[in-house]
């Protein structure tokens, strides 16, 4: 198996990019291929980039509270474009009740602030391996 390819994305108007950038550096240092979209993307742009870059993982960081609007839309677009096997990870400020609903939709991880970087790295490695 080659390098794990990860698309890290910020969607909507949320400009909090500290966490996503730290994670980009950590994933890169862990040997993954990281593509960062930058800020202010639409779900369509993210899914298009994922298709173009042929990634194993899409990570979306959201700290604006818009997670219930954005994740379901991304998940639906991924399914429509044949990205069923791509791991969709969420991170940011997401209350427990919403986590339940998002997990049912197939949004994985849902890492909150303070999650150790190594935990996320290990999680991605494990999940991607299972899918191959």
């Amino acid at each position: 198996m080659g390098k794990i390819r990860v698309l890290m994305a910020k969607v909507g108007l949320d400009g909090h990019d500290r966490g996503v950038k730290v994670l980009c550096s950590a994933l890169r240092d862990a040997g993954m291929e990281v593509i960062y979209t930058g800020l202010h993307n639409t779900p369509e742009q993210v899914v298009r980039a994922a298709l173009q870059e042929d990634v194993d993982v899409i990570g979306i960081s959201l700290l604006s509270g818009a997670h219930m609007a954005i994740f379901p839309k991304v998940r639906r677009l991924m399914d429509e474009h044949g990205l069923k096997d791509v791991l969709l990870l969420g991170g940011g400020i997401i209350p427990d009740e919403d986590k339940e609903a998002l997990r049912k939709l197939g949004v994985k991880g849902l890492f909150g602030p303070g999650t150790p970087l190594s935990e996320i790295v290990e999680y991605i490695k494990r999940e991607v391996q299972q899918r191959h």
Binding site: G12, L13, D14, S64, G65, A66, M68, A69, I70
Partner: peptide, 16 residues
């Protein structure tokens, strides 16, 4: 600089 009816405003109106 977006009004609440703009597509980018979806899910963000009155949230933060």
């Amino acid at each position: 600089g977006y009004d609440p009816d703009h597509p980018l405003a979806d899910g963000e109106v009155g949230v933060e």
